[in-house]
Amino acid sequence: MEPVKILIEQLKQILRGSIEMIPQIAVAVVVLVAVWGINHLAHFIFDRALTHTKLRQSLKDLFSLLITLLVWGFGLMVAAVVLFPGLTPASILTGLGIGSVAIGFAFKDVFENFLAGIIILFRREMRIGDHIECEDIEGEVTHIAIRESHIRRTDGQLVIVPNSILFKNPVVVRTDWDTRRVTVICGVAYDEDVDAARDVIAKAVSTCDTVHQDDKPIQIFAQEFADSSINFEVTWWTGSKPVDVRQSRDQVVATVKRALDDAGIEIPFPYRTLTFNGPVPVQATPHPEN
Protein backbone atom coordinates (compact mmCIF):
# COMPACT_ATOMS: atom_id res chain seq x y z
CA MET A 1 0.00 0.00 0.00
CA GLU A 2 2.99 2.28 0.51
CA PRO A 3 3.44 2.98 -3.23
CA VAL A 4 -0.24 3.88 -3.49
CA LYS A 5 0.08 6.38 -0.66
CA ILE A 6 3.11 7.94 -2.33
CA LEU A 7 1.23 8.23 -5.62
CA ILE A 8 -1.78 9.80 -3.92
CA GLU A 9 0.46 12.26 -2.10
CA GLN A 10 2.15 13.29 -5.35
CA LEU A 11 -1.22 13.79 -7.04
CA LYS A 12 -2.32 15.97 -4.13
CA GLN A 13 0.81 18.08 -4.48
CA ILE A 14 0.25 18.46 -8.22
CA LEU A 15 -3.38 19.44 -7.64
CA ARG A 16 -2.40 21.86 -4.87
CA GLY A 17 0.25 23.42 -7.09
CA SER A 18 -2.23 23.73 -9.98
CA ILE A 19 -4.75 25.46 -7.73
CA GLU A 20 -2.09 27.85 -6.50
CA MET A 21 -1.21 28.69 -10.13
CA ILE A 22 -4.80 29.50 -11.13
CA PRO A 23 -4.30 33.27 -10.63
CA GLN A 24 -1.11 33.17 -12.68
CA ILE A 25 -2.81 31.14 -15.43
CA ALA A 26 -5.68 33.61 -15.46
CA VAL A 27 -3.28 36.55 -15.77
CA ALA A 28 -1.38 34.75 -18.58
CA VAL A 29 -4.65 34.15 -20.45
CA VAL A 30 -5.55 37.82 -20.04
CA VAL A 31 -2.10 38.75 -21.38
CA LEU A 32 -2.60 36.52 -24.45
CA VAL A 33 -6.05 37.99 -25.09
CA ALA A 34 -4.54 41.47 -24.83
CA VAL A 35 -1.78 40.46 -27.25
CA TRP A 36 -4.41 39.22 -29.70
CA GLY A 37 -6.18 42.58 -29.53
CA ILE A 38 -2.91 44.53 -29.83
CA ASN A 39 -1.98 42.47 -32.88
CA HIS A 40 -5.29 43.29 -34.60
CA LEU A 41 -4.93 46.96 -33.67
CA ALA A 42 -1.38 47.08 -35.02
CA HIS A 43 -2.51 45.54 -38.31
CA PHE A 44 -5.41 48.00 -38.54
CA ILE A 45 -3.09 50.97 -38.03
CA PHE A 46 -0.57 49.52 -40.47
CA ASP A 47 -3.20 48.98 -43.18
CA ARG A 48 -4.58 52.49 -42.73
CA ALA A 49 -1.09 54.00 -42.89
CA LEU A 50 -0.29 52.24 -46.17
CA THR A 51 -3.66 52.75 -47.86
CA HIS A 52 -2.47 55.53 -50.16
CA THR A 53 1.11 54.36 -50.63
CA LYS A 54 2.56 52.65 -53.70
CA LEU A 55 4.21 49.92 -51.65
CA ARG A 56 3.98 46.55 -53.37
CA GLN A 57 1.56 44.03 -51.90
CA SER A 58 4.36 41.54 -51.36
CA LEU A 59 6.18 44.03 -49.12
CA LYS A 60 2.97 44.79 -47.26
CA ASP A 61 2.57 41.07 -46.57
CA LEU A 62 6.17 40.90 -45.34
CA PHE A 63 5.72 43.82 -42.93
CA SER A 64 2.42 42.35 -41.73
CA LEU A 65 4.17 39.06 -40.96
CA LEU A 66 6.97 40.83 -39.09
CA ILE A 67 4.45 42.77 -37.00
CA THR A 68 2.68 39.53 -36.09
CA LEU A 69 5.95 37.86 -35.11
CA LEU A 70 7.10 40.79 -32.99
CA VAL A 71 3.77 41.29 -31.16
CA TRP A 72 3.19 37.61 -30.45
CA GLY A 73 6.83 36.99 -29.58
CA PHE A 74 6.76 39.74 -26.96
CA GLY A 75 3.33 38.66 -25.70
CA LEU A 76 4.34 35.01 -25.29
CA MET A 77 7.47 36.04 -23.42
CA VAL A 78 5.42 38.18 -20.99
CA ALA A 79 2.90 35.35 -20.52
CA ALA A 80 5.72 32.88 -19.79
CA VAL A 81 7.23 35.21 -17.17
CA VAL A 82 3.82 35.62 -15.51
CA LEU A 83 3.12 31.89 -15.55
CA PHE A 84 6.58 30.87 -14.34
CA PRO A 85 7.92 33.58 -12.03
CA GLY A 86 11.35 31.94 -12.00
CA LEU A 87 11.84 32.87 -15.63
CA THR A 88 13.31 36.21 -16.64
CA PRO A 89 13.41 37.88 -20.03
CA ALA A 90 17.19 37.45 -20.01
CA SER A 91 16.97 33.69 -19.46
CA ILE A 92 14.30 33.36 -22.15
CA LEU A 93 16.43 35.27 -24.65
CA THR A 94 19.46 33.17 -23.73
CA GLY A 95 17.49 29.98 -24.30
CA LEU A 96 16.18 31.29 -27.59
CA GLY A 97 19.72 32.16 -28.65
CA ILE A 98 21.05 28.68 -27.96
CA GLY A 99 18.01 27.07 -29.53
CA SER A 100 18.19 29.26 -32.61
CA VAL A 101 21.73 28.05 -33.33
CA ALA A 102 20.59 24.43 -33.33
CA ILE A 103 17.49 25.26 -35.34
CA GLY A 104 19.60 27.28 -37.77
CA PHE A 105 21.82 24.29 -38.55
CA ALA A 106 18.83 21.98 -38.86
CA PHE A 107 16.84 24.30 -41.15
CA LYS A 108 19.68 26.00 -43.02
CA ASP A 109 17.95 25.84 -46.42
CA VAL A 110 14.67 27.17 -45.00
CA PHE A 111 16.35 30.21 -43.46
CA GLU A 112 18.42 30.74 -46.59
CA ASN A 113 15.28 30.91 -48.69
CA PHE A 114 13.63 33.15 -46.07
CA LEU A 115 16.44 35.72 -46.16
CA ALA A 116 16.64 35.53 -49.95
CA GLY A 117 12.89 36.13 -50.11
CA ILE A 118 13.19 39.28 -48.00
CA ILE A 119 15.92 40.64 -50.30
CA ILE A 120 13.92 39.76 -53.42
CA LEU A 121 10.83 41.50 -52.03
CA PHE A 122 12.82 44.73 -51.77
CA ARG A 123 14.03 44.48 -55.37
CA ARG A 124 12.59 47.03 -57.74
CA GLU A 125 13.75 45.20 -60.86
CA MET A 126 11.59 42.08 -60.45
CA ARG A 127 7.89 42.58 -59.84
CA ILE A 128 4.78 40.44 -59.99
CA GLY A 129 3.73 40.33 -63.64
CA ASP A 130 7.28 40.48 -65.01
CA HIS A 131 8.52 37.84 -67.43
CA ILE A 132 11.85 36.47 -66.26
CA GLU A 133 14.33 33.72 -67.10
CA CYS A 134 16.58 32.00 -64.56
CA GLU A 135 18.30 28.62 -64.75
CA ASP A 136 16.27 27.45 -67.79
CA ILE A 137 13.06 28.57 -66.06
CA GLU A 138 11.16 31.19 -68.04
CA GLY A 139 7.72 32.65 -67.40
CA GLU A 140 5.63 35.26 -65.64
CA VAL A 141 6.11 36.00 -61.94
CA THR A 142 2.70 35.43 -60.37
CA HIS A 143 3.57 35.37 -56.67
CA ILE A 144 6.54 36.23 -54.45
CA ALA A 145 6.42 34.74 -50.97
CA ILE A 146 8.92 34.65 -48.12
CA ARG A 147 10.29 31.21 -49.02
CA GLU A 148 9.40 30.68 -52.67
CA SER A 149 8.27 32.38 -55.86
CA HIS A 150 5.72 31.17 -58.40
CA ILE A 151 6.64 31.33 -62.09
CA ARG A 152 3.90 30.66 -64.67
CA ARG A 153 5.53 29.37 -67.84
CA THR A 154 4.24 30.36 -71.28
CA ASP A 155 2.82 26.86 -71.74
CA GLY A 156 0.66 27.29 -68.62
CA GLN A 157 2.70 25.17 -66.21
CA LEU A 158 3.42 26.56 -62.75
CA VAL A 159 6.99 26.35 -61.44
CA ILE A 160 7.57 26.90 -57.70
CA VAL A 161 11.12 28.19 -57.32
CA PRO A 162 13.00 28.47 -54.00
CA ASN A 163 14.01 32.08 -53.50
CA SER A 164 17.66 31.14 -52.99
CA ILE A 165 17.84 30.12 -56.67
CA LEU A 166 16.57 33.52 -57.81
CA PHE A 167 18.98 35.23 -55.42
CA LYS A 168 22.16 33.29 -56.25
CA ASN A 169 21.79 33.05 -60.03
CA PRO A 170 21.52 35.69 -62.78
CA VAL A 171 17.91 36.62 -63.53
CA VAL A 172 16.91 38.02 -66.93
CA VAL A 173 13.93 40.37 -66.53
CA ARG A 174 12.47 40.54 -70.02
CA THR A 175 9.77 43.08 -69.16
CA ASP A 176 11.94 45.53 -67.21
CA TRP A 177 11.31 47.89 -70.15
CA ASP A 178 8.01 48.15 -72.00
CA THR A 179 9.77 47.42 -75.29
CA ARG A 180 12.25 44.83 -76.50
CA ARG A 181 14.48 44.64 -79.56
CA VAL A 182 13.81 41.82 -82.03
CA THR A 183 16.06 40.68 -84.86
CA VAL A 184 15.45 38.42 -87.88
CA ILE A 185 17.73 37.53 -90.78
CA CYS A 186 16.49 38.13 -94.34
CA GLY A 187 18.49 37.03 -97.39
CA VAL A 188 18.28 38.27 -100.98
CA ALA A 189 19.89 36.80 -104.08
CA TYR A 190 23.35 37.92 -105.22
CA ASP A 191 21.89 39.25 -108.47
CA GLU A 192 19.73 41.80 -106.64
CA ASP A 193 20.64 45.40 -105.83
CA VAL A 194 21.56 45.56 -102.14
CA ASP A 195 20.48 49.16 -101.58
CA ALA A 196 17.13 48.64 -103.32
CA ALA A 197 16.47 45.52 -101.26
CA ARG A 198 17.32 47.39 -98.07
CA ASP A 199 14.84 50.16 -98.92
CA VAL A 200 12.06 47.66 -99.66
CA ILE A 201 12.64 45.85 -96.38
CA ALA A 202 12.74 49.12 -94.40
CA LYS A 203 9.47 50.37 -95.88
CA ALA A 204 7.80 47.03 -95.25
CA VAL A 205 8.85 46.93 -91.58
CA SER A 206 7.71 50.53 -91.04
CA THR A 207 4.16 49.65 -92.11
CA CYS A 208 3.73 47.06 -89.32
CA ASP A 209 1.61 48.32 -86.43
CA THR A 210 3.42 46.09 -83.93
CA VAL A 211 6.70 47.92 -84.58
CA HIS A 212 7.43 50.80 -82.16
CA GLN A 213 8.92 53.70 -84.08
CA ASP A 214 8.43 56.66 -81.73
CA ASP A 215 11.87 56.67 -80.14
CA LYS A 216 13.39 53.40 -81.37
CA PRO A 217 14.75 53.26 -84.95
CA ILE A 218 14.32 50.43 -87.39
CA GLN A 219 17.81 49.21 -88.26
CA ILE A 220 18.73 47.15 -91.32
CA PHE A 221 22.32 46.12 -91.95
CA ALA A 222 23.87 43.93 -94.63
CA GLN A 223 25.35 41.25 -92.41
CA GLU A 224 27.28 38.70 -94.45
CA PHE A 225 27.95 36.96 -97.73
CA ALA A 226 26.10 33.70 -97.12
CA ASP A 227 26.21 30.59 -99.30
CA SER A 228 23.29 31.58 -101.48
CA SER A 229 22.36 35.13 -100.47
CA ILE A 230 23.32 38.47 -99.06
CA ASN A 231 21.91 38.36 -95.53
CA PHE A 232 20.35 41.42 -93.92
CA GLU A 233 20.03 41.82 -90.16
CA VAL A 234 16.58 43.38 -89.63
CA THR A 235 16.11 44.89 -86.16
CA TRP A 236 13.13 46.69 -84.64
CA TRP A 237 11.46 47.30 -81.25
CA THR A 238 8.15 45.92 -80.06
CA GLY A 239 6.34 45.03 -76.82
CA SER A 240 8.43 43.20 -74.25
CA LYS A 241 6.05 40.34 -73.45
CA PRO A 242 6.76 37.02 -75.18
CA VAL A 243 3.42 37.06 -77.01
CA ASP A 244 4.18 40.60 -78.27
CA VAL A 245 7.50 39.42 -79.68
CA ARG A 246 5.97 36.42 -81.43
CA GLN A 247 3.13 38.45 -82.94
CA SER A 248 5.46 41.17 -84.15
CA ARG A 249 7.96 38.72 -85.65
CA ASP A 250 5.12 36.96 -87.50
CA GLN A 251 3.81 40.24 -88.90
CA VAL A 252 7.22 41.55 -89.94
CA VAL A 253 8.31 38.33 -91.66
CA ALA A 254 5.03 38.07 -93.61
CA THR A 255 5.10 41.76 -94.61
CA VAL A 256 8.75 41.69 -95.74
CA LYS A 257 8.17 38.53 -97.76
CA ARG A 258 5.17 40.10 -99.49
CA ALA A 259 7.04 43.35 -100.20
CA LEU A 260 10.06 41.57 -101.71
CA ASP A 261 7.78 39.45 -103.90
CA ASP A 262 5.91 42.54 -105.11
CA ALA A 263 9.23 44.24 -105.91
CA GLY A 264 10.47 41.21 -107.83
CA ILE A 265 13.41 40.71 -105.46
CA GLU A 266 14.35 37.07 -105.04
CA ILE A 267 14.68 35.36 -101.68
CA PRO A 268 16.81 32.45 -102.90
CA PHE A 269 16.72 28.80 -102.08
CA PRO A 270 20.08 27.26 -101.13
CA TYR A 271 22.24 26.88 -104.25
CA ARG A 272 24.96 24.28 -104.85
CA THR A 273 27.68 24.76 -107.43
CA LEU A 274 29.60 21.62 -108.45
CA THR A 275 33.08 22.02 -110.00
CA PHE A 276 34.94 19.19 -111.76
CA ASN A 277 38.65 19.18 -112.60
CA GLY A 278 38.15 17.60 -116.02
CA PRO A 279 35.50 16.98 -118.62
CA VAL A 280 32.52 15.01 -117.45
CA PRO A 281 31.19 12.48 -119.95
CA VAL A 282 27.47 12.53 -120.47
CA GLN A 283 25.73 9.35 -121.59
CA ALA A 284 22.21 9.49 -122.89
CA THR A 285 19.88 6.83 -121.55
CA PRO A 286 17.44 5.54 -124.16
CA HIS A 287 13.78 5.88 -123.30
CA PRO A 288 12.12 2.52 -122.57
CA GLU A 289 9.56 3.05 -125.34
CA ASN A 290 12.38 3.33 -127.87
Rank of each mutant, 00 (worst) to 15 (best):
K54D: 09
L87S: 03
A106V: 06
L65H: 12
I132F: 02
P85V: 11
L69N: 15
A79W: 07
G97F: 06
T88N: 13
F114M: 04
N113F: 00
A42S: 15
S91C: 12
K108I: 13
V110L: 08
F74C: 14
K54T: 06
V78I: 15
F107T: 01
F46E: 07
A42L: 05
N113G: 11
V110M: 05
K60D: 09
H43K: 11
H43E: 13
D47K: 12
R127D: 10
R56Y: 12
A116W: 00
E138A: 05
V78S: 02
F114P: 09
V81P: 00
I120M: 09
G97A: 11
F46G: 06
E133M: 10
I103K: 00
E112W: 07
I98M: 09
I120R: 04
V82G: 03
F84H: 09
R123A: 01
I92Y: 05
G117M: 00
V101M: 13
E133F: 04
G95F: 04
A102D: 06
G99Y: 08
S58E: 15
A102I: 14
T68E: 10
L59I: 06
S100Y: 13
V101A: 11
A116V: 00
D130F: 00
A90S: 07
G99V: 04
R56C: 05
L59F: 11
D61Y: 00
L50H: 07
C134L: 02
L62S: 13
K54E: 09
S100W: 11
V110W: 13
L62Q: 04
V110A: 08
R56D: 11
L121S: 05
